[in-house]
């Protein structure tokens, strides 16, 4: 690799990027061929146009979470989940598997349930993010949450917020879900204590009432 190629001096290669040495960073094979880098901070030339480059150091970011704007300076490698939990004290979404396998980190992005552990914070900017914390209004539980309470659908409770958000999204889509809707809709969340029986009862109660 041609480490001395002045074209490879990267604009965003700042000292606060502690995780990787500048020399390592420059060893990106092939970029010198594909990307004639140009001067000018925080941008590279690509196909004749300037494309902004973020990171690897901290980048100012802005989020809309539960209708409120939140700001933080984060590296691109920070996930939405870690941003919610560590920056904004929104700890309802839990980190359990951190690999899109268990559903404990379920939040809504643009009203669709996703695993916050597998979304980069940087790409969740300027999208409507909804977390479990938003369901309670004026100190009153959402009917779905009330049904969880009445049907004893939580034990240790660590999976519960993820389940609540998954159920909320299911009921938004199907106010009177069929067993098949429930089978599909709740397949992405796991519980260890064994609260599925209570969740099933809660959903049965809500699917009759409509939520």
């Amino acid at each position: 690799m041609d480490d001395d190629d002045p074209n490879l001096k990267h604009p965003s290669d700042k000292q606060d990027n502690s995780g990787v040495s500048r020399r390592d960073f420059l060893k990106i094979s092939g970029i010198s061929v594909a990307v004639p880098l140009v001067a000018g901070p925080q941008a590279v030339m690509a196909a004749g146009q300037q494309v902004p480059v973020y990171g690897p150091g901290k980048v100012p970011m802005e989020f809309t979470i539960n209708g409120k704007v939140h700001k933080a300076s984060l590296e691109p490698r920070v996930t939405l989940l870690d941003a919610l939990r560590d920056q904004f004290e929104l700890t309802g979404a839990k980190r359990v598997c951190d690999r899109a396998e268990c559903g404990s980190c379920t939040v809504l992005v643009e009203n669709k349930p996703v695993y916050a552990c597998s979304v980069l914070a940087i790409e969740a900017q300027h999208k409507a993010i909804t977390t479990v914390e938003s369901l309670m209004q004026a100190g009153k539980l959402h009917p779905l949450q009330q049904a969880f309470v009445e049907n004893d659908a939580s034990q240790c409770g660590f999976c519960t917020p993820g389940f609540v958000v998954a159920c909320k999204s299911l009921l938004d889509k199907h106010p009177h879900p069929t067993p098949e809707d429930i089978r599909r809709g709740l397949s992405g969340n796991l519980c260890r204590c064994g609260t599925y029986a209570g969740i099933r009862q809660a959903m049965a109660q809500l699917s009759q009432k409509g939520a």
Binding site: L90, K94, E150, D152, G157
Partner: peptide, 18 residues
């Protein structure tokens, strides 16, 4: 009915991880 349910279903319950 379990008394700790409301804080759990609303995401307010604070675990050590939180």
């Amino acid at each position: 009915t379990r008394v700790d349910s409301p804080v759990k279903v609303s995401g307010q319950a604070k675990y050590t991880y939180d």
